[in-house]
């Protein structure tokens, strides 16, 4: 009994700059594995966000563009419309996508652009030092909500997947997480499906991944996994939220 396991070809040898225990690394690997399995490395272009993943183009062995804060779906739209044969995906965090880039993602989804978006939701702004994001949990302490998120003042966390699913345009929208191996398997399936829908030219595809940020949550990586399981998963239920008819 046993199985082999190696780094996918689409992932470069460079060591990531992410903090210990950051699940960005797992999501990068899943994206790379899916690209290898679908054999699309030669025609894939990624769009890197502003946020912790801003340097992600160093970690993959295919083309990447860096976009202005939140504008990744707009850039991806342009590329996909000029070169429909390309496989274009954006990889965005919650500060990038759900805050400054909210209009870009909503309109890209509403236009039904044939692109894929990987949305990493870790309930906090990571790179800038742990400020409150639109997805921060109620009563969660961050550097800009030191007494916990006050929902009377700033409202409840935005469920981006449900928000996009409410649009009438056809789309594939799923939410998964990568905090335990069983979740990782399901997340990979969702990412693969999302890319497949794009390759088939069917619809806009969006995968939200509930992630951890041990550094800015002030927890160890192992505690952060527990926190995400107890506090985030009940509010952000996993599964396919919308599938094309």
């Amino acid at each position: 009994m046993g199985k082999t396991f190696a780094k996918p070809e689409a992932l470069s040898d460079q060591i990531t700059h992410y903090c210990p225990g950051c699940t960005h690394g797992v999501i990068h690997r899943l994206v790379a594995e899916v690209i290898d399995e679908l054999d699309i490395r030669g025609r894939t272009v990624g769009v890197a966000p502003v946020g912790c993943a801003v340097l992600m183009y160093n970690y993959f062995t295919f083309d990447f563009l860096e976009s202005a804060h939140g504008r990744a779906p707009a850039q991806a739209t342009g590329m996909k419309r000029v070169r429909p044969d390309l496989v274009v995906f954006t990889y965005q965090g919650d500060g990038d996508l759900a805050s400054i880039g909210m209009s870009e993602i909503v309109h890209a989804a509403n236009r039904g652009e044939k692109i894929t978006t990987i949305f990493v939701n870790n309930a906090v702004y990571g790179m800038t030092g742990g400020q409150m994001a639109p997805t921060t949990m109620p009563n969660q302490r961050t550097t800009t909500s030191p007494f916990g998120r006050n929902v009377d003042e700033v409202g409840m966390p935005i469920k981006v997947s449900e928000l996009l699913a409410s649009l009438q345009t056809t789309a594939y929208i799923a939410r998964q997480t990568v905090i335990l191996p069983k979740h990782i398997t399901r997340a990979k399936k969702a990412i693969k499906k999302a890319f497949q829908y794009q390759i088939d030219g069917r619809c806009f595809s969006f995968v939200e991944i509930v992630s951890t940020c041990p550094t800015n949550w002030g927890l160890t990586p192992v505690e952060a996994v527990k926190w995400a399981e107890e506090k985030m998963l009940p509010y952000y239920p996993l599964g396919e939220i919308k599938t094309p008819q």
Binding site: K3, T4, F5, T16, G21, R29, L180, P181, I184
Partner: peptide, 20 residues
């Protein structure tokens, strides 16, 4: 070790490999 590869799949830095 039973080579179940759970550690490989969990590792955020792809530091663990199993080769045959």
């Amino acid at each position: 070790c039973i080579k179940c590869a759970l550690c490989c799949s969990m590792c955020p830095d792809v530091a663990i490999t199993i080769t045959g």
